[in-house]
């Protein structure tokens, strides 16, 4: 019943069996904290984000950090080689991660990463898309829905304009990007279930 943490935000999927659950979590937290801080720094740079109430800034970040990280780290999933690179720098094959207990979430992450990377977005486009992912008025606990909605609409308009300018002959890219939003929600839900299972374990 040896425990494994099959998340690329960890340095390695292997867990020292001598360590307590609390110690394992502390180590894991230590490895993903810098990535979470980067998401917060990114959010601070979104024009208009700092003008939202502090409560709504926290709510958006709490709900959306995982989805932002999925977009930012899509390149950790090598679809061709079927490997995942962990933050420790080592690559693991899908088969080895499956043997360690990874399930449907891993497959779904590969599918998502493949489709996103295939769109061939520039850094600027990816950044704006990430802002759209984060600023969603329908997240739970938002107190000023109108303000978040207004910012969300501004960001979506900016994304559409940038995509239309950069890809005049590929009108479907913007639609495909918007369709990634429910995919990310679904990944987020699956991930929350796995976190719950880990915590119960």
């Amino acid at each position: 019943n040896r425990m494994h943490l099959v998340c690329p935000m960890n340095t390695s999927p292997h867990v020292d069996p001598q360590k307590s659950g609390h110690e394992v979590w502390e180590e894991f937290s230590h490895s993903f904290t810098p990535a979470v801080r980067e998401v917060v720094e990114f959010a601070k740079k979104i024009p208009g984000f700092r003008e939202l109430s502090q409560h709504d800034q926290v709510s958006l970040l709490k709900a959306g950090t995982f989805e932002v990280l999925v977009v930012r780290f899509a390149s950790l999933f090598d679809v061709k080689d079927r490997t995942v690179t962990f933050l420790g720098g080592k690559r693991y094959s899908v088969d080895s991660l499956r043997a360690l207990g990874a399930g449907d979430l891993l497959n779904s992450m590969f599918d998502f990463s493949e489709k996103l990377m295939n769109l061939g977005l520039s850094e600027e486009e990816m950044s704006l898309f990430t802002a759209v992912v984060l600023v969603s008025a329908d997240r739970s606990g938002i107190e000023n829905v109108n303000s978040v909605e207004a910012l969300q609409e501004t960001l979506i308009r900016a994304l559409r304009s940038l995509i239309t300018k950069n890809h005049p002959n590929e009108a479907s890219i913007f639609t495909k990007l918007l369709l990634k939003l429910p995919d990310l929600r679904s990944l987020n839900n699956m991930h929350s279930e796995q976190l719950l299972a880990f915590k119960v374990h």
């Binding site: 926290v58 709490k62 976190l195």
Partner: peptide, 27 residues
């Protein structure tokens, strides 16, 4: 368990990072 972000310490990290000065002082 209905709020994994709070349960797993994410909210604390986010709040500290949003208030950058506090984080700097702690480090």
């Amino acid at each position: 368990f209905s709020d994994p972000a709070s349960n797993l310490g994410l909210e604390d990290i986010i709040r500290k990072a949003l208030m950058g000065n506090l984080e700097d002082r702690q480090e």
